[in-house]
Design a protein around this nucleic acid. Structure first.
Length: 263
DNA sequence: ATGGCCTTGGCTCAAGGA
């Protein structure tokens, strides 16, 4: 079973690129982030024609997540609220969480807030959101021992995941507070970064800034991840970053990351 | 040192992204 995660930065702008990639790559589930479209306007037909089912949770202009699955998913739900109490209602107002069940596996697709600038209101929101995420995943794990959490985490877990980590403590996506919050929300619950089962060195990136020819110069970050509970970590047999879509005209600034689990 | 580009909305500039 192959599960891909890809922040597409507008599904409508990227529709041809994404459907062509899907035809060539044929993953079982494609988890999209930053779809930037309401559910009514999500372009489902091209995916249905390719034999996929679409589960979407989006809003106008910002955010938005979707699960594109070859097999129908069970018990799809959206946001934190169906799983756990949300003490601060603003944490569930943006469309960033969608979850579904495929056989014995619970899939969670996340778009973690960006955080804007260190110390900003959005940065504070990101840290609060990650605290809420821990409660959400803790509750899910009690029902689903086979848990896979993927998406755009907007955090580089360690210095290997940044082309140049110097001065990182002032850089959003790289501060100790963000790393600690992500570690609390995922690793301390027993979920492990699938990519690191196969690749221990640095220099592997999933996002490159549009500006300053960052892709050409390979000035990237690895911020798109798959986290796996222990039984699924055991079953992981590959995790790869496909840089090809980032090289095409009018790309997303992120490129897909694919994990393969033994069936 | 700074900004560098791309997307959306709705109107040509502002905001958000990372």
């Amino acid at each position: 079973m192959k599960i891909a995660t890809w922040n597409v930065n507008s599904i409508r702008t990227r529709l041809d690129l994404v459907t062509q990639w899907l035809q060539a790559t044929a993953v079982d589930v494609l988890c999209l982030q930053e779809t930037k479209v309401t559910d009514a306007d999500f372009p489902q037909a091209p995916f249905v024609e390719l034999g996929y089912h679409c589960y979407v949770y989006g809003q106008k202009s910002y955010n938005g997540v979707a699960l594109i699955s070859r097999a129908p998913l069970d018990r799809v739900n959206t946001g934190f609220a169906p799983v756990v109490d949300v003490a601060e209602p603003d944490l569930d107002q943006q469309k960033r969480v969608i979850q579904g069940v495929l056989g014995e596996v619970c899939l969670v697709n996340l778009y973690v807030p960006n955080g804007s600038a260190v110390g900003s209101e959005k940065y504070d929101y990101k840290l609060r959101w990650l605290k809420q995420l821990r409660l959400y995943l803790q509750a899910l794990l009690s029902s689903y021992p086979n848990l896979l959490v993927c998406g755009d985490f907007n955090v580089a877990l360690d210095d290997r995941d940044i082309h140049d980590p110097s001065g990182r403590e002032q850089m959003v996506m790289a501060t100790d507070a963000e790393r600690t919050a992500l570690t609390h929300a995922l690793l301390e619950l027993g979920l492990a970064d699938g990519f690191r089962k196969f690749h221990l060195d640095g220099g592997h990136f999933s996002w490159w800034d549009y500006r300053a020819a960052a892709f050409r110069r390979n000035l990237g970050w690895r911020i798109d991840h798959h986290y796996l509970s222990a039984p699924l970590y055991e079953r992981a047999i590959a995790c790869t970053i496909d840089v090809a879509p980032r090289q095409l005209p009018q790309p997303s600034d992120h490129t897909p990351v694919i994990i393969e689990l033994e069936d």
